[in-house]
Design a protein around this nucleic acid. Structure first.
Lengths: 228, 228
DNA sequence: ATCGACATAATTGTATACAATAATGTGCGT
DNA sequence: ACGCACATTATTGTATACAATTATGTCGAT
């Protein structure tokens, strides 16, 4: 899970790099993503930058406003609910499948993953911890050997990171990975139904930790910030 | 559900037009999508064509082979299974939600939809019938008021159309819309659990009507077609 | 005739040029 | 001073030019 830095940047690697930056909260919701600026940063032309931004907009991580540029997306409360609704349909059953077919090797990988997450958290690298926490969920879909579902979950995870950036309640206490440990135990026992239940609860806990009262997001940094 | 033909073509409208052509089996799997050719067809530059093709490749309807061009995707047997696995996680529960909140107006729209589907089928417009059949599933997600899930289902539906093109067993008998009628009845009764069950069976019937024995797709039209 | 090396053509990948649109700044009139 | 019209600047949208790569065709050697 090392960082991205290819010899030569392509639209895909740039998109991946930006997605990771968004996921790690280094690019907060609403950030303007100017084409020239990005082009210079990566040493590529606007053609490739635009391709990357379009890719991210398809994943709803970036909002493309016509003639106005690209911005890191700001999911609404409604969208936040929808994202977790989708996750609640996909992830529990996928966790169950994973538990029923997991190998010792994958189990070891997962454990390492958790350890990294733990280390990052205690090293104060909350961005990296958040990213790894998301990767854990993606790994599960990979273990279930469901690439199609994995792609959906991957998108939903990144979008969840934006949602957390906007609506996370307790700023201090980070996502305690207790739930992830419990899941690993279920995997180790090949207990599918338990894994399904644990994942379901985990997702419910997550939404519960959000403040999803109707505060419209759009006015974001001006009207709302100025309180008028 | 009329056809697309804006005064001026943009990358999005072109992508939508191509997606519909793919969905209606006017562009079979494996078809080469040359950039110059498409550019002339729509009267736009390769820039916009490429943007459209990239969008479709993100939805896995088009495969982009580096330096070799774009082709209508040819989902493998494995991918076919995954697509229907994903649908089975998303659609039944979504049908349930839809049944529990459907309005009389939406119900009327759905009935009209079915009627159009029926007409198209009996008029021999199998492509259009297939498209409308897909739209029916998307409508349900829309009624459930789940835009995020709707987007996923929309993609899965289009991919299903490719899968049907490749693996459909009985060429003659088209998707009998009995299942759709039954679903509408459940909706009319606001019977959520029934709608969920019906959708589950409907999807199982669909996969059952496919021939998913392991015939590798890639060699497709040459090595396989020539049997060597 | 068949195979392979080379040349030619066709197609895609990337950068850049130009057009269109939106944002910003200036100055005039009231 | 304030507001509005207009000019200027910045940024995005689209087309095109050029480079890189792949596909195709030709020719000669065996």
């Amino acid at each position: 899970m090392t960082s991205i830095d290819p010899r030569i940047w392509t639209s895909e690697t740039v998109a991946a790099d930006l997605e990771r930056a968004i996921h790690e909260h280094r690019l907060p919701p609403g950030t303007k993503l100017g084409e020239d600026e990005l082009g210079e940063a990566y040493g590529i032309s606007r053609t490739l930058v635009r391709a990357a931004l379009q890719a991210l907009s398809h994943r709803r991580l970036v909002e493309l406003k016509r003639n106005r540029g690209a911005y890191v997306a700001q999911p609404t409360v409604q969208e936040a609910r929808e994202v977790f609704e989708a996750r609640s349909l996909l992830e529990p059953r996928t966790a169950r499948s994973a538990a029923e077919r997991i190998t010792e090797e994958s189990l070891a990988t997962l454990r390492n993953h958790i350890a990294d997450e733990h280390d990052a958290l205690h090293a104060g690298e909350t961005g990296r911890a958040l990213f790894l926490s998301g990767q854990f969920h993606i790994q599960i879909a990979r273990i279930a050997d469901q690439k199609t579902i994995e792609d959906f979950i991957s998108e939903l995870i990144s979008r969840s990171s934006l949602i957390i950036a906007l609506y996370w309640r307790r700023r201090a206490a980070m996502c305690e990975s207790q739930a992830h440990h419990a899941l690993i135990d279920a995997f180790a026992r090949r207990d599918g139904p338990l894994a399904e239940d644990l994942m379901k609860s985990h997702l419910l806990d997550l939404v519960a930790s959000l403040d999803l009262r109707h505060v419209v997001a759009p006015p974001q940094s001006l009207r709302e910030a100025l309180g008028r």
